Computed example of a mutant assay.
Amino acid sequence: MADTFIPVRLSYTGSAVTAIAEYQPGETMQHPGNLNFSGSGRRITGDFSSPAGSVANRTWFQSNVTNGQTMLPVLPNGTSSISGMQLFGATDPENTSIGILQNNGVYVQIMVNATGTGTQLPLLFGTANTERMRFDPSGGWYVGSSSSDPIGTQTVGMYRGAAGTLSAYATGSGPLRLGVASGNQTLETFISNGATTVGTITTNGTTTAYNTSSDYRLKDQVADIDPQAAEARVLAYRPATWIWKSNGQPGKGFIAHEAQAVDPDVATGTKDQVQRVGNIRAANYTLLAERVEEPADLTPYGEDAAWSFTEEVPVYQGMDASFMIADMVAMLQKMRRELDETKAALRALQGA
C-alpha cells in the first residue's frame, strides 16, 4: 500500500487576525509567528542520530539567511536572568545524569548533575576525540591525564585531589617549569600553613635560593644543641653509594630509613610503606576515577558507585639532609674547642 501523506496545517494569530497555513510533504514550512506548545512533556523530534550513509542525512538546525552564520540563541523570560541547556543521559529524565550549560546573569557555568538515581558523572574536555582534562565528582581534577598519580605512572599531566593533593609530571623532553620575569622576586610560595608562608623559592635574576622559614619571631625556647649528642648523631650516620634502579646512574648520600633511625627529623615517611589504590565506577560500570585511595564517602560519585582495589603502590621515603647541618656545625665547633684546648696544653708543656 502506498504511503498516504496528510498536509500539515499551522494556525497563527497576529493583529487580531487568525490565519491557517497548509504545507504539503516536501515543502519548506514558513511560520511568521512564535511557536507555542500547549500542555507538558512536548518534544521536537527528528533524526538527530548518525544514520547510515552521509552525516548530512541527520536533522539539522540551519540559518535561512544565505551565507549566514547559524547560532542558537536561548533567552530567559520576564525578569529571570537564567538561560541554558540541559543534556540528559537517558530517556527517563527523572533518573539520569545531566550535563548543564547555563548563564545566570552573574557567570556562565558548565556543570554536571543528576536526577533521582542517576549517576554523577565526571566532566571531560578533549580535542581530536581524546580526553585532555577531567573533573571528577569528588572535586578532583586532571589535566593531560586521568590518573591520580601522574608522577608514578609517568603520564605527562597534573592532578589535584579532592583532599587538596596537587601533583604534576613532565617528561625529560618537556621539562616542568615555573618562572618569573626577572629581578629580585619571589618565584613561588611552595609551602604554607594557613596564612603563614613557611617556604619560598626566590631569585635575584641570576641565582635561585630555596628557603625554609627561620625568622626568630617564629620560634620559642631557642637553645644550643648538645654538642655531645650532635657528635654521636653525626658519627652514627652511614654515608653510602648506590646505583639508581631507574636509569643505572650512580648516587651517593644516605638511606632514608637508616638516617631516620638516627634522627627522625631528617627523613619523612615509613620504611616499606605502601598505599592501596583502586578505581571508582558507577553502577553501569562507567569509570569515574582511577588509581585513588578508597574514599571514606562515595556519595559525591552518585548512588551505587563503588571503589574496587587494583594494586598496592609504594610510598617512598624522602630526606632533607639540611637537618644534619646543625649537628655537623655543633660537632665542628666542639672539635675546634677541643683542638684549641689541646694546643694551649701543648704550649704550656713546651714553656715549662
Results as ranks from 00 to 15, higher is better:
D226C: 10
D226K: 09
D226R: 06
P227H: 07
P227M: 02
Q228G: 14
Q228R: 11
A229H: 06
A229K: 11
A230M: 06
E231Y: 11
A232T: 14
A232Q: 07
A232R: 06
V234C: 12
L235T: 08
L235W: 01
A236G: 10
A236L: 02
Y237I: 05
Y237N: 06
R238F: 00
P239W: 08
A240Y: 00
T241F: 10
I243Y: 05
I243W: 03
K245W: 03
S246R: 02
N247A: 08
N247M: 03
G248D: 01
G248S: 09
G248Q: 10
Q249D: 08
G253M: 09
G253D: 11
F254N: 07
I255S: 00
I255Y: 11
I255H: 05
A256Y: 08
H257W: 13
H257E: 14
E258P: 00
E258S: 02
A259H: 01
A259M: 04
A261H: 00
V262D: 04
V262S: 01
D263V: 04
D263M: 05
P264N: 05
D265H: 09
V266K: 03
V266P: 10
V266W: 02
A267P: 11
A267W: 10
A267Q: 11
T268V: 00
T268E: 01
G269N: 03
K271S: 10
K271A: 14
D272H: 07
Q273L: 11
V274D: 02
Q275D: 14
Q275E: 15
V277L: 14
N279F: 05
N279D: 15
N279W: 07
N279S: 11
R281V: 15
A282H: 13
A283P: 00
A283Q: 09
A283E: 03
Y285P: 00
T286N: 11
T286I: 14
L287G: 10
L287A: 12
L287S: 12
L288W: 06
L288M: 12
V292E: 05
E293R: 14
E293G: 14
A296P: 03
Y301K: 10
Y301V: 09
G302A: 02
G302E: 05
D304R: 15
D304H: 14
A305Y: 04
A305K: 13
A305D: 01
